[in-house]
Amino acid sequence: MSSASVILQLICPDRPALVSDIAGWVAANGGNIRHADHHTDAGAGLFLSRIEWDLQGFGLPREAIPVAVKALAERLGGDAQVHFSDDHPRVAILVSKQSHCLLDLLWRARSGELPMQVPLVISNHPDLEPYCADFGVPFVCVPVTTGKKAEAEATILELLDEHQVDLAVLAKYMQVLSGGFLERFSEVINIHHSFLPAFKGAQPYHRAWERGVKLIGATAHYVTEELDDGPIIEQTIATVSHRDEVEDLIRKGRDTERLALARALRLHLRRQVMVYRGRTAVFA
C-alpha cells in the first residue's frame, strides 16, 4: 500500500503561468508530486486543477496544510479544498427494497476497493436488514408514510449527524429528498436507472422499451433539489434489442446501475471529481 498523499482541488480565474505557480508552491514546500491534472474552461474563464503529492517529506505539518492551501487559493482569487488519501469518509447508504446496489457497495467496502467506512444503512422498508447483518453493518428502518415525510427526513438527518456521516449514497432509495433536507445535508450521490437526461423520473425502463431504444444506461449524479438534474459523475450503458422485454431491460439495467454507482463513488472518494457551474470535471 502506498503512503499517504495530499490532494489539492483548486478552481480559480484563468491566467498565464498558473500550473507553474501551483506546482512551484508544492515544490517550494518540498512536495513530490504524484499526479497533476488541469482543465481550462475558456468560456467561463476558469482554471481547474487537481494535484496530488506525497505527505511524507512535505515541509508543512499535516494540520497546517489546509491553512496554507486557503492562503494560496486567496492569492489566486479562487477556492480550494485539501484532502488526504488515508482519510476514509463515513458513508451512509440509503435504500428501499432493491438489494443489488447495496450488496455491491457493501462488498466493495469490505474488500477495500472503496476507501470508506459504512457506519449505517437507512431504509424506508425493513426488507434488507438481513443483508446488512451479514456484513455487520447497523440497519435503521425509517418509514416514510403519507403526510409524515418531514418527520422521516428529520429522523434521517439526526442519524447522519449522530453517526458523523460525511456522504450519503442513495442506492435505490425510492424517495425524493426535499430542498430543506439538502440545505442541511448536501453531500448526496444518487443512482438513476436511465442515461440522463433521457427518461427522468419513474419507470424509465418501461418508457425506454416503449420507445424501442437500442441502448439503456444508468447515471450516478450529485443530488440537487431538481429531480434527476444534479451534476453527473458517471454513466454506463448496455445494449438492448427488439427481442428484449421490459424485464430484460430491468435485468440488464441492474448491472449498469451497480457499475455506475461504484465507479462514481470511487471517483468521489479519491477526490477526482470537481463540481462547477452545475456540472463536473472528472479527472480519471
Score class of each variant (00 low, 15 high):
5 S>G: 11
5 S>M: 13
7 I>K: 02
10 L>A: 11
10 L>Q: 15
12 C>K: 07
16 P>T: 05
16 P>N: 07
16 P>K: 07
17 A>D: 14
19 V>Y: 06
22 I>A: 10
23 A>F: 11
28 A>I: 00
29 N>G: 15
30 G>T: 15
32 N>I: 11
34 R>G: 15
38 H>K: 12
48 L>A: 13
56 Q>H: 12
56 Q>V: 13
62 R>Y: 03
63 E>A: 14
65 I>V: 03
68 A>N: 03
75 R>V: 14
75 R>G: 13
77 G>L: 10
84 F>N: 01
90 R>Q: 10
91 V>W: 03
91 V>K: 06
91 V>N: 11
92 A>K: 06
93 I>N: 03
95 V>L: 00
95 V>S: 00
95 V>W: 00
96 S>W: 01
96 S>F: 05
96 S>C: 00
97 K>W: 01
100 H>P: 06
100 H>M: 04
101 C>M: 07
106 L>I: 00
107 W>N: 14
108 R>M: 12
110 R>D: 10
112 G>H: 03
114 L>D: 03
114 L>E: 03
115 P>M: 05
116 M>W: 03
118 V>A: 08
127 D>P: 05
129 E>S: 10
131 Y>N: 11
133 A>F: 12
136 G>I: 11
139 F>K: 11
141 C>G: 02
144 V>H: 06
145 T>W: 06
147 G>H: 01
148 K>I: 06
149 K>Y: 13
149 K>I: 15
150 A>E: 13
151 E>L: 07
154 A>P: 04
154 A>W: 14
157 L>W: 08
159 L>V: 14
159 L>D: 02
162 E>H: 14
162 E>T: 15
164 Q>Y: 15
168 A>P: 11
169 V>P: 02
170 L>M: 08
171 A>I: 00
171 A>K: 09
172 K>I: 14
173 Y>R: 03
174 M>N: 08
175 Q>F: 04
176 V>H: 00
177 L>P: 12
177 L>Q: 04
178 S>N: 07
181 F>T: 05
182 L>Y: 05
183 E>M: 13
191 I>Y: 07
204 P>Q: 06
205 Y>M: 01
207 R>A: 01
208 A>C: 05
208 A>D: 00
211 R>T: 07
212 G>V: 12
218 A>F: 09
219 T>Y: 02
221 H>G: 04
222 Y>H: 07
223 V>G: 07
226 E>I: 12
237 I>K: 10
237 I>V: 10
238 A>C: 10
241 S>C: 07
242 H>T: 08
242 H>E: 08
243 R>D: 11
244 D>R: 04
245 E>F: 12
245 E>Y: 12
247 E>G: 08
248 D>R: 08
249 L>H: 01
249 L>D: 06
250 I>K: 01
254 R>T: 03
256 T>P: 07
262 A>K: 00
263 R>Y: 08
263 R>K: 14
266 R>M: 13
267 L>S: 11
273 V>C: 01
277 R>E: 12
280 T>V: 04
282 V>I: 07
